[in-house]
């Protein structure tokens, strides 16, 4: 009985110890990941700085970039207008559908004879 309890206690201690080791390992892994990310960022920064001659050559202002921007703005605006027109069209169609339904409802409310007497438009 005493030996069994001792074994159980030993197992519990071992579990606690393993849990602690696992926690330590997780902290270490997180630290390594962080350091790795920093190293990667530094490497990317150094690579970018190595491209300085290329970037320096590109520091000249190209006024055509302004034209590219204005073209983008124009296409965005026309896309927006198209979307709005499509939305209006869809809304108009659903309104027409709804009003048609209303009309049918009205017609049925007015009575079959009056509805039938109305000229088709």
């Amino acid at each position: 009985m005493t030996a069994e309890r001792k074994d159980q206690e030993e197992l519990r201690d071992m579990e606690v110890e393993l849990e602690l080791i696992l926690q330590d390992a997780e902290v270490t892994v997180a630290k390594i990941r962080e350091e790795l990310a920093q190293h990667r960022q530094l490497r990317r920064q150094r690579e970018q700085i190595e491209r300085l001659p290329e970037y320096l050559a590109q520091t000249e202002v190209r006024w055509r970039d302004m034209r590219v921007l204005l073209d983008e703005v124009r296409s965005e605006l026309s896309a927006g207008e198209q979307d709005a027109a499509e939305a209006n069209g869809a809304a108009g169609a659903s309104d027409a559908g709804a009003s048609g339904a209303d009309g049918a409802a009205e017609g049925s409310a007015e009575g079959p004879d009056e509805g039938a007497a109305r000229p088709a438009s």
Binding site: V61, R62, D65, V68, L69
Partner: peptide, 11 residues
């Protein structure tokens, strides 16, 4: 100048 240069990335 740098604002115009950044427009080069607009796409």
């Amino acid at each position: 100048t740098n604002t115009l240069v950044s427009l080069g990335m607009v796409k």
